[in-house]
Design a protein around this nucleic acid. Structure first.
Lengths: 332, 332
DNA sequence: CTGAAAGCGCTTACAG
DNA sequence: CTGAAAGCGCTTACAG
């Protein structure tokens, strides 16, 4: 493998001059530059990223911190990993995955060993030790999720509160008075996963304000349980509205509604457009914009890394209604 | 951040001795060792991975090469990214994602810039330029998929041929004589994605041998198309058997069968147990063991990296029948 | 506009 | 058993 020294020799210049054209941080006269470029081409030279990382103390890679057990519920998040990597790459960064039960340890280790420049933290909780760590240690990071306290923290998320309210409004406008709210497993609310409890809070609060009778059903993660719960709700004629926030149960709800449609029951779902599309959900859905929010997080982190500055940006993506069957829309 | 020099000073030894305890490649007397360990603890020292990588010329990270457009079809693969990262980490490696339309370029660049030690190549095709590259350049890599020619190549996959045969046998044993075979979109066969065409070849060949009438239906990737195709097949009473190999269409088939069950129609599916479980597929399924095969690929690559040796290992995972509704089994 | 020198933080023969 | 020295392949002030 050719090194910068080889290039310098072939081009008849010093190593620093080669480095100058490589980094582009210094003016190099056109003739010298082109001699160097020729040498690079003939030697098929590529900068050694390890050496560069050591010299610059930047690795040009982002760490994605996920909790492997949470991913079980939020497996849609996994769908976006590849897109995240593409997004990062388009900005000159690589993406490496940190999946460990103890995210704090992962971040500490990775930061101490200087293996990445910053972190994207997924499946954020209201009281999240990982966020406390990055704040305290001033580790570059952005939260994908929205805890209440975002002082000194960069955070990006879909507006789950707004979406919860919008869902209730939609049903209210259709005359719903007795509404069932099917949501995630109880565990996620115990953990206070922000995407779960923000939506729930909004749904329950607005329903109360509007004088609607709302019943909340935490939905277990076993298909059998899901089916039992959903069947009992669909069979209960007293409901005239359903708010649905559980990506994992979406295919089963679609199945049940396909088996016995309930045209008189307005349903509004919250899930990524991709889920709505793949399962062809037969009801309107508020796109939780999973892809866009993770992209925005990448953009924000890269920006912070490049320009520095104090964290504290809070970015919330607006709810958008899609479907039923948004097959006309570009979805991935 | 403390460096190895700081540790050496505090412990009153040379930097090389510190390095010896860090790498564990040299004997260090217990007293010296414990002085060094104390110093490491009090200084909260962590090896700088960039410096180590430069010195050892190993990065301790694996590159996962995926094709972002294929992932659309094989989105289940994405489900396993996190697990792959965990598996790699358990062996001391990090995992970074390379998602680009031109996998060859990705690999070349990453290899030249020495950003990873080896590659896991997903969604392998029969005639795959990425594999040609790693063979020619002797780049450490393992294919997740099984091309016909595996000379000088490490390859791991689920036995899609065996599974195709098994599926046909199952239906044959149940007296099926006129069988519909629903498979992936035509595009995947044009590309000769090995998991797709191996299964298909096996299904078609064995059905012919057994004198069964088999009709193959390539299934588009739009839900609407899927539904149309599946409906027309289910409505056609002349079929008395169905082989189903299309993870993406699984939820829709489940939906249709839920709506109008066809107890007289034996169905055998090929898909990851996870898909069968999540969608609660109402028919038996041959688990394509996606998680296990990717794990095996990690293990093989790490082994190759550690022990060296000529590539040429060919590992095929045996088909296993699960379901219907394998809810009793541990699935992730 | 270009180059010589020092430095990034490790590891690894090589002496002793 | 331990240490001094060279080297991994870059970048970056600093001179000139």
């Amino acid at each position: 493998m050719a090194t910068i020294g080889d290039v310098a020799r072939v081009a008849g210049v010093s190593r620093s001059t080669v480095s100058s054209v490589l980094t582009g941080r210094k003016y190099v006269s056109p003739p010298t530059r082109s001699r160097i470029e020729d040498a690079i081409a003939t030697l098929n030279f590529t900068v050694n990223s390890r050496a560069r990382a050591l010299a610059t103390s930047r690795t040009m890679t982002l760490g994605l911190v996920v909790n492997p057990s949470d991913t079980h519920h939020v497996s849609t998040a996994a769908l976006y990993l590849v897109s995240l990597a593409e997004r990062a790459r388009s900005k000159g960064y690589l993406l490496t995955i940190f999946a460990g039960d103890d995210g704090v340890r992962e971040i500490q280790d990775a930061h101490a060993s200087k293996v990445v420049d910053g972190f994207l933290i997924m499946e954020v909780r209201e009281d999240d030790a990982r966020l406390a760590l990055v704040k305290a240690e001033r580790i570059p990071a952005v939260a994908i999720g929205m805890p209440s306290d975002t002082r000194d923290l960069d955070a990006v998320d879909f507006d789950f509160s707004g979406a919860g309210r919008l869902a209730v409004e939609r049903l209210h406008a259709q005359g719903a008075t007795r509404v069932a709210f099917v949501c995630w497993p109880a565990e996620l609310y115990r953990l206070e996963a922000t995407y779960a409890f923000r939506a729930r809070e909004a749904v329950e609060t607005l329903a109360a304000e509007l004088g609607m009778a709302l019943e909340t059903f935490e939905c277990a993660s076993e298909p059998r349980e899901m089916q039992r719960l959903l069947t009992s709700i669909l069979d209960d004629d007293s409901y005239n509205g359903l708010v649905f926030h559980n990506d994992a149960a979406a295919p089963i709800l679609a199945e049940l509604l396909a088996r016995s449609p309930r045209p008189g029951l307005p349903v509004t779902g919250l899930c990524p457009a991709r889920v709505s599309y793949d399962h062809w959900l037969p009801f309107e859905t508020i796109d939780t914009r999973a892809l866009e929010s993770t992209w925005a997080a990448v953009d924000l982190l890269v920006d912070r890394l490049r320009k520095g500055g104090k964290p504290g940006t809070r970015l919330l993506l607006e709810p958008v209604i899609v479907g039923p069957h948004p097959s006309g829309r570009e979805v991935r």
